[in-house]
Design a protein around this nucleic acid. Structure first.
Lengths: 200, 200
DNA sequence: GTCTATATACAGATAGAC
DNA sequence: GTCTATCTGTATATAGAC
């Protein structure tokens, strides 16, 4: 299984675009990163814009499928929420700059959102609504709750430079802070669930 | 009180930089917005970089002082949290693109954070710690809680295009969603406070 | 397919008249 | 202080040899 030139370009372009954004990225940087010539980029993808669109689409599709599986597993509310938060945070640890890249790109050209799968959200919201009806979850707006969960997960990664400065933490301390995040988010979510067993 | 050319430039530059970011902004666009000639921008601010730094500093200082006042008022935990969330959301409604501008700018050049006041955070965290010790708030990590609150407030504004798409809402529906946000965030925070009165 | 060399476009910055 | 005209650098994109 050889690595084709196209693969090398895609790899390199992902790195540079995600790091620098469309406007900040330079074709020369991508070429350097791929260890090929700048002209080859155009040979394979015609233009910066077209290359960017490819990368964006790939990145969007890598975004949610893991979460989707979790949503469809059969777990009690808190267990499912825990799995979702964990899966989501895992993705963020592996791709800390992905959310801001996607967010920024969506401002630049909202039409790209057409390619973004939406069912995961719907399924999750449906699940939460059912959980409320069945008395496993306190009465909250499920849509609002999903956004709150995403916010609690994503924000410390997206706003990392500002947040670490605000908290007076260096890189290492902030990494530790992030690792404790799951427990603390679940601490909050716990309070929203209703303990049917009564034990604990 | 006349509007000086410098004022016009600053106004215009704020709008364009906040909207497009440093890389995306064009000096020509700023000049057009200010209804002056491009050369005048350089006459007043020498370079794009210098103009940007000015704007950034101004925007950073407009960011938190309102919150600071609230933190220093004498209110019970939930009341203070409510005031903070409200003030914060108000600022976000008035400046929806400010956070992403600041975040993105901080990635570009982290040294700008030196100009960002930090005491507000410290004060708030101290306050929360005290509230926990005095039994008004459940045992959570105050730093984590502050980040969670910020995340819940900021995320739906920062990620607006993606979030509205995910939820299948148009502009108007999403605005309504945002207006309900305060109540829902407080709903979550309520569960973290300890009702000393015992009523309700 | 891959390279070097070059064309083209445009943005930031300056010169100089008024 | 404000303008028009221009310079200079640099980024995307193409031509053409190998």
């Amino acid at each position: 299984m050889e690595v084709t030139t196209e693969d090398k370009i895609i790899q390199a372009a992902e790195k540079i675009f995600v790091r620098d954004g469309y406007d900040g990225a330079r074709m020369q940087d991508i070429a350097n990163e791929a260890e090929i010539n700048k002209a080859l980029l155009h040979y394979y993808f015609r233009s910066k814009e077209k290359l960017f669109q490819q990368i964006l689409r790939r990145k969007m599709q890598a975004f949610l499928p893991k979460i989707q599986k979790i949503v469809h597993t059969d777990l009690p509310v808190l267990g499912k929420l825990e799995a979702i938060v964990e899966g989501y945070l895992q993705m963020l640890f592996a791709n800390p700059r992905l959310p801001i890249f996607l967010i920024y790109s969506a401002y630049r050209d909202p039409s790209i959102l057409e390619h973004m799968p939406r069912e995961i959200f719907d399924d999750l919201i449906r699940f939460l609504r059912k959980a409320i009806k069945e008395g496993e979850l306190k009465k909250v707006d499920p849509e609002q709750l999903v956004v709150s969960i995403m916010g609690m997960c994503v924000f410390p990664f997206v706003a990392r430079p500002i947040a670490s400065h605000m908290l007076g933490k260096d890189e290492e301390q902030y990494s530790i802070f992030l690792k404790k995040r799951k427990k603390e988010i679940l601490r909050v979510l716990e309070e929203l669930t209703i303990d049917s067993g009564g034990d604990k």
